[in-house]
Simulated scan of single mutants.
Amino acid sequence: MSLGDVEITRVVEWSGPIRTARFIIPDSDEETWRRNRGWLAPDFWTPDDDAYRCRIQTWVLRSEGRTVLVDTGVGNGRERPQVPQFAGLRTDYLARLRAAGVAPEDVDVVVNTHIHYDHVGWNTEWRDGEWVPTFPNATYLIPGADNAYFDPESPRRSRPPRDDHERVRWEGSKLVYNDSIAPVLRAGQAVLWEGSYRIDGNLLLETAPGHTPGSSVLTLRSGTDRAVFVGDMLHSPVQVLDPDWNSCFCDDLRLAARTRRAWLSRAAELRELVVPAHWPGHGAAEVRQDGDGFAISAWAAFPRG
C-alpha cells in the first residue's frame, strides 16, 4: 500500500502461536478477550487453546528514492535460550525480501525500533565463520539508550533482573547483542541516536521508552497521510482497549503504559495509522477514543493472508 509518496510492504519471517494470551498480556482479563472474540479470533487469538498469535515481520518503506527496513526479525541460526521456539530458526526471509524487490545490497537504512531478539536478528548473517552485517550498504539506526542498556560491557545497566525468568532473558540478551548489534558497530555502519532522528522529509524517529529504555517509534507524514510504526508498544489489539495493559516483555511497566496511552491519544487525534511490529491479520489499524480507552475504527488495507 502507499501513504502519500511512501510505499509500504510487509515481509513476514514467521507466523504462529506463542504461549497463551494472558501470559503475553498478563494484565488483561479473560472476560475482555471473550467479549471481543468476534474480531480477535482467529487472527490474534484462538479461543480453544487461548493461544496468542503473532507475526515476526519487517516493514519495508520506499521513501525519497531510498529503501528503509523497519525491524529485522529473529534471524537464522541463533542461540536463544530465552525463547527456545526461535533457537536455530531457519527461514527463507532473504528470499522473501527479494520477492518484494529488495536485495540486501539495495537497503539504505535499517531501523531497529529497540534491541530485542525479534527486531534485530537479520541485522547480521553468519558468513566465513563470523557474524557480519546482512545489508552491506545500509546505515543501521539503533537507539542509543538501548545500546547502553543492553551492551554487556556497559555500566548503565539500570537494574538487576527481577526473577529467574528475567535472568534467563538478560543472559539471552547478551547473545543478541553480540551476534546482532556488536558486528554492525564494528563495521562502522551504526548510528546511535538519542531523542529524535530525521531520516528524510517523510520519516522521523522519536523515542517512546518503557518497553525498553530506548524503545522508539517511526512516524510517517507524507501529504495528508500519516502513520506511526510503534514496534512493541502494542503486542495485541486488546492493549488498544486498555492501554494500561502491558506485555510480559515490558521493562518499565508504569512508563510503558503512559507511553502507550500518549501515543494512542495522538494517533486518534491525528488519524495516524498505527502499525505495530507483530500484529497478524491486516497488520495495522486506525484508532479512536472510546471512554478511558480506545477502539479500532478501521483496519489497514493490507491483506490478511
Rank of each mutant, 00 (worst) to 15 (best):
S2W: 07
S2V: 01
E7H: 12
E7L: 06
T9N: 05
T9H: 08
R10Q: 12
R10W: 02
V11F: 07
W14I: 01
G16C: 02
G16P: 01
P17A: 06
I18F: 14
R19E: 15
A21Q: 08
F23I: 10
I24E: 08
I24A: 13
P26M: 10
D29G: 09
E30G: 01
E30W: 04
T32K: 03
R34H: 11
N36T: 01
G38H: 13
W45H: 04
D49H: 05
D50G: 11
Y52S: 04
C54Q: 09
R55N: 13
T58F: 07
V60T: 12
E64K: 07
R66H: 02
R66E: 10
V68A: 06
L69C: 03
L69M: 06
E79Q: 09
E79R: 10
V83D: 11
V83T: 09
F86Y: 11
G88L: 05
R90S: 15
D92A: 06
A95V: 04
R96C: 04
R96M: 06
A99T: 05
A100T: 02
G101A: 06
V102N: 03
E105N: 09
N112V: 11
H114L: 10
N123I: 10
E125H: 11
D128C: 10
E130W: 05
P136M: 12
P136L: 07
A138M: 02
T139G: 07
L141I: 06
L141N: 03
I142P: 00
I142S: 03
P143N: 06
P143T: 08
A148Y: 06
E153V: 02
S154H: 10
S158N: 09
D163G: 13
D163H: 10
R167L: 15
R169G: 04
R169H: 11
G172M: 01
L175P: 00
N178K: 07
D179M: 09
D179P: 05
V191S: 08
L192Q: 11
L192I: 08
I199L: 10
D200N: 15
D200K: 07
P209E: 13
G210Y: 09
T212G: 04
T212L: 03
P213Y: 01
S216T: 06
L220H: 03
S222A: 09
G223L: 12
G223K: 04
D225C: 10
V230T: 14
G231T: 03
L241C: 05
D242K: 08
D244A: 15
D244S: 15
N246G: 15
N246W: 02
N246L: 00
C250E: 12
D252R: 12
T259F: 14
R261H: 08
R261L: 05
R261V: 01
S265G: 14
R271L: 06
L273P: 03
L273R: 04
P280C: 13
P280D: 04
G281Y: 07
A285R: 02
E286Q: 07
Q289E: 15
D290H: 11
G291E: 02
F294W: 09
A295K: 14
S297A: 13
A298P: 05
W299T: 01
A301G: 15
F302V: 00
P303Y: 07
P303L: 04
